[in-house]
Design a protein around this nucleic acid. Structure first.
Lengths: 190, 190, 190, 190
DNA sequence: CATGAATGAGCCTTCATTCAT
DNA sequence: GATGAATGAAGGCTCATTCAT
């Protein structure tokens, strides 16, 4: 009978918040521990180390996000344009609702010494690629390099978020509208 | 007699190469020194410290790049579409010719504890923004949020490079063509 | 119902095996627990701490061994040479039969921060010393410094085992014969 | 031009003294540093780490010792018995003159996680083995297993030192005489 | 009796920076 | 200008031990 281990949750929340704010390398184990109200050693009961913890949380967050994104992107029966629109809107909703988690994904993605975001089992990149492939095969959009298309589309969305975090723009409804139509134009939909 | 302080050059080259390869935080002063064939203390003869050195090199690289980019983007007398095309092609040329420098810019941009790329005096972001503003004012493209547009356009280009570095795509002529037309579609040119 | 506290046995066996293999300092409480299939805290149900456990086991093993050795060394009525021979043979038999326990004694003897093998109530050293004293008093061997003689004799036997563990020699019947006669020559028996 | 680096000497002396006194595992880097009057980091300019330092010093000490021992053991032209006697006396002289170094060799020999004394290039064990082989080949002593003989002889000498360090005996001239004759008897010389 | 999360002190190591030479 | 030994402040991690469950 283990105790409710609520401290683990505290540590994970603290870690994500700190990773998202200061970056992986700039966040110390001591930071995480004191933010979570525990001592340093406690981390090592649940994770093999700091980087491993970050990577594990990173995968979990990105997979949670991807799973939900998938239901929009591949909603059965929905027309292509609607699925694109729903997907983009979902991403920005998610970004608005879980800004810390999203910032964590955004800021940490290139910071791992060994691992890479594309190694995560279910990642948005692969999903967009599959989406494009299927659309091409269905004759709904012209033939195109799906890997490239996936990069282009994600570039549009992610960079807008980067600019939001850098206070260059403020994301609101009209911005999202603009991104939706940019994505459609890049994919030559409608 | 002996050549002059060619050591400084060696150190800068080593630093850029290492920062581009391993990232700022993962590169130690000892790494730089030994790669350049000098000792650790030598760095402090030319720079106040490691981060300052990186930031200084970063600004220099980005300004060199920006200056050249500007001549394409604002080529006097050239039509809009041609300037867009020339700009995108230049970016990829530069990326192909100075991959280390470019990776340095790409990988280091989020790695500074204090500074940010948008603070660099002459940065691509501002340039694209100005480009869009002028095009709108000239009635060459529909009215649009230029900050957002700048983000979208840079997102297209940068993410393609990220994917190249992650071996998801290989940049060649047709990829560049595709990016050029994606940028044009996003800016609603032609 | 369930068997009684067989867990304690498991822990002791695991501890002895690990101490013998990796040494005292290199063996962690977690090692012992996981090897024994229990959790870390369980150790403290039976022992005040790791070092105390090791010392207790060490004393137990050495006393068990010493007691049996004593019956050979001081077998009533047996001639001196026979008792020496029986003793040496017993040591090597024991070493062959309980290699882990013996290695534990051998490798751990200098590893305790506070305690020392010579502090154990019944230890081989004291026994050999008494043996020599009595033989001298009985006029069976020339007068000699019994403390020194005890060191010499034990040195012969123990170092052979060390060499066996280091794979420099392989102990077999003829090796034991040689050690027996070496001991006799050192003690000037026969 | 490096400064006289007298601190390195201090650190090595402190390390040897501490390793000999408390053992390898019980000696911390902080101990060594503070005993040598430097800070912890200083160690890492000269050695890759604590264990590496200990092993390096250990090898150096044992090789210094072995080299000198070799000149006695293989003194050209000297008769066998004289060489044995000179060798044993030299060992005890060395032990008396450099008790710390010798204790370091004695106490540390089993404490390395990876390495072993018999792996040292020039070690006493190999030397004694060669000595016995040559003596057998020259017909000066009966045929015998030289590996075993080497173990026996070293067992005699080392265990006497262990007992000295444990205050069970006090080494003086007559003890050394006794060890010399014990060695001769074991090797069946004279 | 057993669990295992948590502690707290300490360990080895790293590294940007300083400074006597 | 250059050297490299030394510093000092962390940093990540380990581990014997405690204790609420």
């Amino acid at each position: 009978m283990a105790r409710p281990a609520v401290k683990k949750q505290d540590m994970e929340n603290a870690a994500i918040r700190l990773f998202a704010t200061k970056g992986l390398a700039q966040t110390t184990v001591k930071d995480i521990a004191s933010e979570a109200g525990v001592t340093e050693g406690a981390l090592y009961r649940h994770y093999p180390g700091k980087n491993a913890m970050a990577w594990q949380l990173f995968c979990r967050e990105i997979e949670t996000f991807s799973a939900e994104l998938g239901t929009r992107m591949f909603a059965p029966g929905a027309p292509l344009a609607a699925r694109v629109e729903a997907s983009v809107r979902f991403i920005f909703d998610y970004y608005g609702k879980y800004p810390v988690q999203f910032a964590f994904i955004l800021l940490t993605q290139h910071g791992f010494p060994e691992e890479r975001i594309l190694d995560v089992a279910s990642n948005p990149n692969d999903m967009v690629e599959r989406f494009v492939d299927e659309a091409v095969r269905a004759g709904e959009i012209p033939s195109m390099n799906s890997s490239l298309a996936s990069g282009l589309v994600l570039g549009l969305v992610l960079q807008v978020m980067v600019m939001d975090r850098y206070d260059r723009i403020e994301i609101d409804g009209s911005v999202v509208d603009d991104v939706v139509s940019a994505v459609k134009r890049v994919l030559m939909i409608g």
